[in-house]
Simulated scan of single mutants.
Amino acid sequence: MQNRYAAHPNEVKNYDTSRLREEFLMEQLFATDELVTVYSHVDRYIVGTAVPQSKDIALEVNLKDIGTNFFLERREIGIINVGGHGTVTADGQGYEIGAKECLYIGRGVKEVVFKSSGKDQPAQFYFVSTPAHHTYPTVKATQEQAQPNHLGSIESSNERTIYRYIHQGEGGIQSCQLVMGITELDKGNMWNTMPAHTHNRRSEVYLYFNLPEDGVVFHMMGEPNETRHLVVRDRQAIISPSWSIHSGVGTSSYTFCWAMAGENQTFEDMDGVAMKDLK
């Protein structure tokens, strides 16, 4: 398991591109027939992937890294499939998970196994796990069952739909602190989350996907008056600490999975940044 440590904004403003990428970007997440995990000391996320092609993959890590007897002993997890059809088994109960479908598994589940329905188009399971103090039931949600919110306009190149899966609102999957969903940009739109914001009570992780092979997203980060950018490619993820903006513009439209954790689960709790204050 890789480790990523928390960074002070006064230090980050002096980082060069290589250091920024080293600290915040997860470049090599999806590996066939392997469980890939990254432990972030920002709100104790574990971000990971499983791409089971020729074999099933169990959610097992070096237990010394998390100090428990099994992965979900004191954690919850949200899983979104960004590949072909597959199955996630939680303590013997199987859940078929298609593309852009979500499965939440609560604290206390001992065995989680990832499996693909076919080798030609294997499932690509992306997950985010956070500490949990209460047990909520395992729940699956399709994209049609998620809460949609259509925002933006083609005039500002940010027409998009936000699909909330794990959230406190009506119809949302309940969790201890994890909030998770997908944002899809309409064709011809490139910007997400601009005007920008921060939320000092929560951090966030972005996974960008559905980018063409030669496409990139210029992800904006940093304090509003000390912005930086990172070039992000398909199926790469960014850790966004609470003091940082998190926005991006792509060379084409794209989709991204967002996950938040921290002091509260209120999606609308954010501190807007006026365009005139960005530097």
Rank of each mutant, 00 (worst) to 15 (best):
T142D: 01
L230T: 05
T193V: 14
V51W: 11
L35Y: 09
Y104E: 08
L25Q: 08
F70Y: 15
I154H: 12
S240R: 09
N69R: 14
H197G: 06
R233I: 02
V88T: 02
E60G: 03
L59W: 11
P224R: 13
Q236C: 05
E159V: 04
T32P: 00
G215A: 15
H167Q: 11
F30V: 08
R160H: 07
F209K: 02
E144R: 12
E27T: 15
A196T: 14
Y126D: 01
Y5Q: 10
E22S: 10
E159A: 15
I46H: 04
Q28L: 01
A7I: 15
S153M: 03
H167G: 10
V273M: 12
L20R: 09
P131T: 10
V38Q: 03
T251Y: 04
V42H: 07
H199E: 06
P122W: 04
M180T: 02
E60K: 15
L278T: 10
V61G: 07
S129P: 01
V47W: 03
A31D: 08
T255H: 05
V88F: 01
E223N: 11
F125I: 02
E213Q: 14
E73I: 03
V42W: 06
F30P: 00
L278E: 10
L25I: 02
R235C: 09
S242G: 04
L207G: 05
T68M: 03
G250S: 09
E170M: 05
Q168S: 15
L35K: 08
S116Q: 05
A7W: 07
C257I: 14
Y95Q: 06
D33F: 06
N3D: 04
P9D: 10
S175W: 04
Y165T: 03
Q145E: 15
K110W: 02
A123W: 07
F218T: 13
E76D: 06
N192E: 06
E73L: 03
I79C: 10
Y39W: 06
Y163N: 07
V112R: 06
T89L: 01
L211H: 03
T89D: 02
L278I: 11
I79Q: 07
S175V: 05
S244M: 11
T32H: 00
P52I: 05
D186E: 14
N69C: 04
V112P: 01
T68P: 00
R75S: 08
L59M: 12
P122L: 05
V232S: 05
T138I: 08
V112A: 09
V42T: 14
S244A: 15
V38L: 04
M180N: 03
T89W: 03
Y163C: 02
I166T: 07
F127N: 02
I245L: 13
Q265C: 07
E11N: 08
Q124N: 12
D43Q: 14
L278Q: 04
